[in-house]
Design a protein around this nucleic acid. Sequence first.
DNA 1: CAAGGACTTTAGAATTATTCTAAATCTTGA
DNA 2: TCAAGATTTAGAATAATTCTAAAGTCCTTG
Lengths: 141, 141
Amino acid sequence: MVEKKLDNKFSERLNTSGFRFTPQRQRVYDVLMQKRDHPTADEVFVRAKKQMPEISHATVYNTLDALVKCGLVKQVQLQRGAARFCPNMEEHCHYYCDKCGEVFDVPLNKNSAMMPSPRGFKVDHYDIAVHGLCADCAKKK
Amino acid sequence: MVEKKLDNKFSERLNTSGFRFTPQRQRVYDVLMQKRDHPTADEVFVRAKKQMPEISHATVYNTLDALVKCGLVKQVQLQRGAARFCPNMEEHCHYYCDKCGEVFDVPLNKNSAMMPSPRGFKVDHYDIAVHGLCADCAKKK
DNA sequence: CAAGGACTTTAGAATTATTCTAAATCTTGA
DNA sequence: TCAAGATTTAGAATAATTCTAAAGTCCTTG
């Protein structure tokens, strides 16, 4: 029971939040790390299936929730419809093109602390999106 | 055709974006103004129905979209699931309690300009949410 | 090793949120 | 007044997510 501890960071992180390591969870996390384009749960499902054809829809949803709870992944809700997922845990904000749907991360300097703090509110995390047109779409318009 | 122009700000704003004034749109907007608790489209529908029983679901959705396009209302996506709507067009951010779901606006000082600007990206608007626990829920925990 | 328990996965059903469709109605300008 | 275009409506359709029940896995204890 002791020797599996050092498996890797990923497995440790799951464990400390009370989750077990499973191949499905590894696979979902790998999918997110491999192509960092902020896929939806369904896109993750499709990609995960390529190497693990028997994985189910529900597992992908459950896993994404678990990873969010572990602090391994961020859930991003940029518009109505499907949530997107992002394994970049650095402090950053999302630039979102309302035309083509492209999303990209922009690191955030420390001064995000400029946010006012209503008394008593216990901040968990900030969620900052910038909507507009990406360079390409802006040109075309 | 001329004398309706000065109806009110609301109607003007619709017109300048190519929308017509309709009683349904007025009603939906009134609902948002009367109770500023960031209702979902469905909650708006229920409230609107009280004084306008024949209003339809689709109209509420269409209207909310129209109001967002006019710049009269903001759409807020704080979590998975239903979008919420907010008639406060001042620069502000949303504090959201992940436990009880309460949302409140906090005005934002001018220094929101601190946001980095990737070259070529044409910013339309910022969308800033702060997740955590409201004072009440933080106490209980 | 066997049994029990907790956690996880799976397929598919169910639910929720939103969008679409087609027909009816309304408004506006010619 | 008429035609075009916008709007509304009920209900169907779609999309996104959650739920359910059964089966599988892994660990711990006897």
